[in-house]
């Protein structure tokens, strides 16, 4: 492969600048945090010395110092989030109350449209099906597999194979599965694996991706295929982290594997389970590429993120697209409340 280093020079230079900026920003921040407090500390010490010399009451450590530290630690994140996500989220919410061209206020009209158009209602139900099934199926599968594969031979290989789809983009995965679901007329050779199986069992080839509601389940299968590996790896790690003495003690008490699973394993991996379910739920709410690549939202398979993109970018309906996005924000509220409860428990525990 001929390769012109000179032509690519600028890119490496830019990459170099990027890395330099990284070192400068992060290093600078840490340095600042190191130098400034020690300067304060010295001054505080000096005050202490002066105070003890004069016999005045000892000054206390200033309380807001902690807050100041926190601010510096959080500053880059907060700034970036404000520009990249908070601003856009507010803008989206405002746009959802405006018309297609974002010129006039229309009140709740876009929301009215959302809940009255049968096609959109279908989109909302589909999203609901997705967000219930994907975390449930992917997590259960990952958990069962993690338990099954624990301590067997070839564990590493078996786990790698399940995790492999994580490395594939959503688009790539959808292409792979579109290939599996492909249809050819019954007078021809099938090129899709699933239809080949159907045909060799004596059935008629089916249009898997065109038959609602089966097609939504088949698309969900793609997401499960990608995410089960994530669930499996996290949960498997959690299972391995259960202290051996607990497991041994339970075994000595003569518990069944079933009891072991529910009474020892499950309570111990609960935090990992929560991470998995929460992460999968949010990823599922935002799923976009799979539906887009596999069916383009046809045959009653569309989901909110896909419809939102169509409305806002393809149809020039900013208001309606934004209303769909706001509905996504609303759907995440239960997860947020659950997370708050968890945090409370953690703080108390």
């Amino acid at each position: 492969m001929e390769f012109d280093f000179i032509a690519e020079k600028d890119k490496f230079l830019m990459l170099g600048y990027g890395l330099l900026a990284f070192v400068a920003v992060v290093g600078g921040l840490l340095l600042l945090l190191d130098v400034v407090p020690s300067w304060f500390a010295r001054r505080h010490e000096a005050k202490l010395v002066a105070a003890s010399a004069s016999g005045a009451p000892l000054p206390r450590w200033p309380k807001q110092r902690e807050g100041l530290f926190a601010l510096f630690f959080l500053l880059p994140t907060l700034l970036l989030l404000a520009v990249g996500l908070v601003g856009p989220a507010i803008r989206t919410t405002l746009l959802s109350f405006m018309d297609a061209g974002s010129n006039d206020w229309v009140g709740l009209r876009n929301y009215g449209w959302m809940f009255s158009d049968p096609a959109i209602l279908r989109v909302l139900t589909n999203t609901l099906v997705w967000v219930i099934l994907v975390p449930l199926v992917a997590t259960s599968f990952g958990l069962v597999y993690a338990v099954l594969v624990d301590k067997v031979r070839f564990e590493a290989v078996a786990k790698s194979l399940i995790f492999l789809p994580m490395a594939i983009s959503f688009v790539g995965a959808s292409i792979i599965w579109k290939f599996v679901y492909a249809y050819r007329g019954d007078d021809q050779q099938q090129i899709g694996l699933l239809n080949q199986i159907v045909v060799s069992l004596g059935g008629e080839p089916k249009f898997f991706l065109q038959e609602s509601p089966l097609n939504t389940l088949l698309l969900i299968m793609i997401m499960v295929w990608i995410q089960a590996g994530f669930a499996m790896v996290v949960l498997s790690a959690a299972i391995k982290a259960i202290p051996a003495d607990i497991v041994e003690a339970a075994r000595l008490d003569g518990v069944t594997p079933w009891q072991m699973f529910w009474q020892i394993t499950m309570p111990n991996i609960r935090p990992a389970l929560i991470v998995v379910v929460v992460t999968l739920s949010i990823a599922t709410l935002k799923v976009f590429d799979i539906v887009r690549t596999a069916t383009n939202g046809n045959y009653d398979t569309s989901v909110i993120a896909n419809e939102m993109y169509n409305q806002a970018f393809r149809y020039g309906q900013n208001g309606q697209g934004s209303a769909l996005a706001v509905f996504l924000f609303v759907l995440v509220i239960p997860i947020v409340i659950y997370q708050i409860r968890n945090l409370r428990q953690q703080r108390e525990g």
Binding site: G185, D186, D187, F207
Partner: peptide
């Protein structure tokens, strides 16, 4: 194939 194959 049949009519439906037009869609895919």
């Amino acid at each position: 194939g049949g009519v439906k194959s037009i869609a895919t």
